[in-house]
Amino acid sequence: MKIDLFITCLADSYYPRTGIAVVKILEHLGHEVRFPREQTCCGQPMFNTGYKDDTRTIAKKMIDVFEDSDIVVTPSGSCAAMIHENYEVLFENDPVYLKKAKALAAKTHEFILFLTDVLKLNLTDLGVQWKGKATYHYSCHLRGIGVEGGGAKVVDVIKQVNGLEYVQIDKPEQCCGFGGTFAMKYPQISGTMVEDKVNCIKDTQADYVICNDAGCTMNISGSCQRAGHEVKFITLAEIIAEGLGLLEVENV
């Protein structure tokens, strides 16, 4: 099938290797991947801060860019949730774009869920082989895209990777404290939240934290760096790509 990639602004600039992994995996599976170059950002930072009018302009652009796409895949749960949950809210009074917003939401998938729910793939069957001791950060936006069972479902997928030693994190359901501008507006609260998360990561003694949302990664890895806790952050997409030999195993 023809799949259009929505890379998201954070992955584009900060975590390009995730996007590379996604493209390589999808092409390996025999799909045609396209990258509409006019795409920018889903508008989540503005929306969450309350700048609705500004967001509307950005959302319109997103909708237009992907209007002709059959399927849109994105490596970020939080950006997928923005399109799924909030675009409709923005166009409540604009029937033309409301219809388009709903159409975009219907065809937009977070990458891991796309593999499991749309392509119905199992990583073991796919032959994903990867060595490492890893824990997983349950992103809050799994709630936003309505993942039944939340993070536990992703953990099941992670456990399908041969050779991966999975360690469960304590307080998995607790937010890391990112919350976009929240981290800037309330550094004290956000800071104690992420310190809590870092301590839980330390307790796992894992070498890798699997984190599929770039915002959470920036926050938690930044806090680990400040605390002097050495641990590698990786997305499940990168693990799969490495595990299929599509990406070189590197020091992430």
């Binding site: 900060y14 800037m184 550094p187 806090s223």
Partner: peptide, 13 residues
């Protein structure tokens, strides 16, 4: 500035 009060900020590659 609030960000780096509590954690380091990653730079893009």
């Amino acid at each position: 500035a609030g960000w780096t009060e509590k954690r380091d900020l990653v730079t893009p590659p």
